[in-house]
């Protein structure tokens, strides 16, 4: 017998003997269900304009990079300046295998995950040995070095990048294809959001907060710092690689110049800052904001390259805590991490 009860902000479903509780988020702009419904309506509303759907998918992809980053920033206690390195890893793995072996997207996914895993584990010692500042610097440089490597080895096809990657779905109608891929990007966003939300509201999220606030004390309280940092770094790197995989298959081409250089890194950083540091729901707002701003500014012609960082700088000046900061003044007691880059 299924019985559904509704108490103030809690939905209780009883199936036979078991009881499932589902808290309804009363803050409407943070309510995931409402947000997902709104987002899901977007491609349907704009189904006639494929470039807007493409924008929608791009925003989702950007948000998918920012969401695991929200976990990583607290979980390792340092600021990672090169998340796009793993986007490059996932994307290039998917692109190379797809172009040279003709594999479809769902076959390259496990390979991209493995590549993310391998490189994540390879670079994870950085989190434990490097002092806070060194970590940020080395991660700043990693994508740039990767870019040089792509220029050197001809298999990456340097500046033009790899093209001809198998698309995600192959349907006859172009419009349906756009719709379906748009919804797939939304699905990826929802999965990432769900996973990271579950992680952050569990004990792993508490450990991440403890590591961020005071590593030494957490160590003395019985928290195995190395294990949790490495776990966080590897898990988030795998997630970001999956985003790279998706980007490669969605756009059909993958070039390091788009993803591995400083402007892209700045976009990611700004998404995270504007959305509210480390807040995963804010990251979605930040992603949409950045993507829409960039599109709007192209109206001005080539000057938009200057205007974009300028506007973002003004925004940073006026809203140092991002959009989340406006909310935070009312709700002081939720966890709001202090991001430390330099630890003397």
């Amino acid at each position: 017998m299924v019985r559904i009860e509704h108490k103030r902000a809690l939905l209780v479903v009883r199936i036979g003997d078991k009881k499932f509780e589902w808290p309804i988020e009363t803050r409407y702009w943070r309510n995931p269900l409402l947000g997902i419904v709104c987002l899901a309506l977007l491609p349907i509303v704009f189904s006639g304009q494929p470039d807007l759907i493409s924008l929608f998918a791009t925003a989702n992809i950007y948000a998918c990079i920012a969401i695991p980053l929200g976990w990583q920033m607290t979980g390792i206690g340092r600021l990672n300046f090169g998340p796009q390195f793993f986007v490059g890893i996932g994307g290039y793995t998917a692109a190379l295998i797809s172009v040279h072996f003709g594999w479809g997207p769902w076959e390259t996914l496990p390979v991209a995950v493995c590549a993310g895993l391998v490189f994540g584990v390879m670079f994870s010692p950085l989190t434990t040995i490097a002092k806070g500042l060194y970590f940020s610097l080395v991660t700043l440089i990693l994508p740039l070095i990767f870019l040089e490597v792509t220029y050197y080895f001809r298999v990456f096809q340097g500046e033009t990048g790899l093209y001809g990657i198998t698309p995600l779905v192959m349907v006859d109608n172009i419009k349906t294809e756009y719709l379906i891929t748009g919804f797939l990007s939304l699905l990826m966003l929802i999965i990432f959001l769900f996973v990271v939300h579950k992680v952050l509201t569990s004990r792993i999220g508490l450990f991440a907060a403890a590591i961020n606030d005071d590593e030494e004390v957490a160590n003395n309280l019985g928290l195995n710092i190395k294990r949790w940092k490495i776990l966080c770094f590897v898990a988030t790197s795998v997630m970001i690689s999956v985003t790279g995989w998706f980007a490669a298959h969605y756009f059909g081409t993958f070039a390091g110049v788009t993803y591995l250089q400083l402007p892209f890194m700045l976009k990611i950083l700004l998404m995270v800052m504007i959305g509210g540091r480390g807040d995963i729901y804010g990251a979605i707002y930040g992603a949409y904001f950045v993507v829409i701003l960039e599109k709007l500014l192209t109206v001005f012609g080539t000057v938009h390259y200057i205007l974009f960082p300028l506007i973002l700088m003004i925004l940073l000046f006026t809203l140092p805590e991002g959009l989340y900061g406006i909310y935070r003044r009312h709700r002081y007691r939720e966890y709001y991490p202090t991001i430390r880059v330099r630890k003397r």
Partner: peptide
């Protein structure tokens, strides 16, 4: 520091 580094990059 995070705002500092972001602004400098900007």
């Amino acid at each position: 520091e995070e705002l500092l580094l972001t602004s400098l990059l900007l």
